[in-house]
Amino acid sequence: MSLLTKVGASLFEVIDPELGVNIMDLGLVYGIEIDDEDNIKITMTLTTPGCPMHDSIKNGVQYQVSQVEGVGEIDVNIIWEPAWTPAKMSEKAKEMLGFS
C-alpha cells in the first residue's frame, strides 16, 4: 500500500463530532501531497468558516496522519476557497445525513 493510500485511509478515522461522519466521506479533504522526504501536506476545509470544531478536527487530522508509519513533517492547511458544498459528500455521507 502506498504512503498516499495509507494517509488517506487514516483520515477516515477522523469523525466530525457534530455530524458523526468522517471527514473523507464528508468531502472535506481537498488534497494530500507528499514530497520527496515523505512530508505530508493536507489541504482541507470545514463545513462552515469559523466552525467551532476548527482546532479539534485539525488536531485529529494531525494525530491520525502522524500514526502512519514513515511520514515526515505534517502540515494541515485549512482553506475556505473553494467552499465546501453538500455535492462534495459521498453517497454514504448523504445517506447518513438523510440528504439524498
Binding site: E13, P17, D55, S56, I57, N59, G60, V61, Y63, Q64
Partner: peptide, 11 residues
C-alpha cells in the same frame, strides 16, 4: 465537548 474531547479526536 471542545474542552473535554478536542485533544482526543482521532486518537
Amino acid at each position: 465537548w471542545t474542552y473535554k474531547y478536542s485533544e482526543k479526536i482521532g486518537k
